[in-house]
């Protein structure tokens, strides 16, 4: 998943630095994709295994727009985000609506079903090969930070993650919509009784969540390559991140992403022959110690 470029001549510092940069970029991409899942899970209490499928749809649309139609990266990104939201709206209306408040098993089955369908259709339409999203010249190459140089794209992913975190923090803490959202997360019935149109809050958050997933899918395409089994391959990772962070918590998700991104990247660099062994071991340890997530609260 992650390219391994260990500079021998520079010794340990270079290794540590590349691990840190890759881990940070990977963690930020995870954050951009998973934060929507976390918010909708905290809000609607839906175990949504299909979230990665939306990230994948975003990646496919961007790849089609940028590579096959020759549009610019920024435009392709916008088309991907809005296109994915447009695709997601009927799915939410027709399918998700029916499983709000249903038992977890039902939600798991429905959303796995959606994931399988998306994988099958993506493969039918785009074929089984890996899709790339060509980067603009501005994002290729590397940036010199004075003491080290890092790949521009990694820096871009990290900045995107920070921007999303800041924007979400502002939207949730400082705007009127954020107040309604927090009220609905805490107690949907009481919020509705006080005149909050919860179905609108739900619809808007779902759309934002899907849009963020698509954004993450496009920005992270270098780290998580777009192919039909994307939705299944990273489904677990996104779910794990949300569960470890605590559903509905932005700081919790951010910490979980950086922590797990760090463990995963370090594991791949240092003990690649063990695969994801240490990642899952850490997940089990964290979930056992914090069954409600790092920032989870009792409800």
């Amino acid at each position: 998943m992650l390219p391994r470029i260990i500079g021998k001549q520079d010794g340990h510092m270079q290794t540590v630095f590349s691990i840190a940069v890759d881990a940070l970029a990977y963690g930020m991409v995870l954050f951009v994709i998973s934060i929507g899942l976390s918010v909708t899970m905290g809000l609607m209490r839906v175990v949504n295994l299909a979230h990665g499928a939306f990230a994948m749809i975003g990646g496919y649309i961007a790849s089609y727009a940028a590579r096959d139609m020759g549009l610019g990266y920024g435009i392709a990104l916008m088309i991907a985000v809005f296109g994915t939201i447009v695709i997601a709206i009927p799915i939410e209306r027709l399918l998700y609506r029916r499983i709000y408040g249903a038992p977890e098993l039902t939600q798991v089955l429905m959303t796995i079903g959606i994931t399988f369908c998306v994988i099958g259709i993506a493969n039918y339409v785009f074929g089984p090969t890996l899709k790339t999203i060509p980067l603009p010249t501005g994002l290729q190459g590397s940036v010199d930070l004075g003491f080290r140089s890092i790949a521009t794209h990694r820096l871009f992913a990290i900045l995107c993650g920070l921007a999303v975190a800041a924007a979400l923090w502002y939207a949730i803490e400082k705007t009127a919509f954020g107040v309604k959202l927090r009220a609905a997360v805490d107690n949907a019935a009481m919020a509705a009784a006080l005149g909050v149109r919860t179905e609108i809050v739900y619809a808007v958050s779902f759309a934002v969540a899907v849009g963020l997933a698509a954004l993450g899918g496009v920005v992270g395409a270098e780290l998580l390559p777009v192919e039909p089994y994307y939705a299944l391959r990273y489904m677990v990772t996104f779910l794990v991140v949300v569960s470890v962070g605590g559903a509905g918590s932005i700081p919790g998700t951010l910490v979980a992403c950086l922590l797990l991104g760090g463990i995963d990247t370090a594991g791949r660099y240092l003990v690649p022959e063990f695969g994801e062994f240490f990642f899952y071991l850490a997940v089990i340890a964290i979930v056992c110690v914090f069954p409600r997530g790092l920032a989870g609260r009792t409800r």
Binding site: R98, L109, M110, G113, F116, C117, G120, P128
Partner: peptide, 16 residues
Amino acid sequence: FHWLTMVGGLLIAVVL
């Protein structure tokens, strides 16, 4: 791959 799409459709149908 059609198999995967069908399983997905089947799951959704069973749930609904």
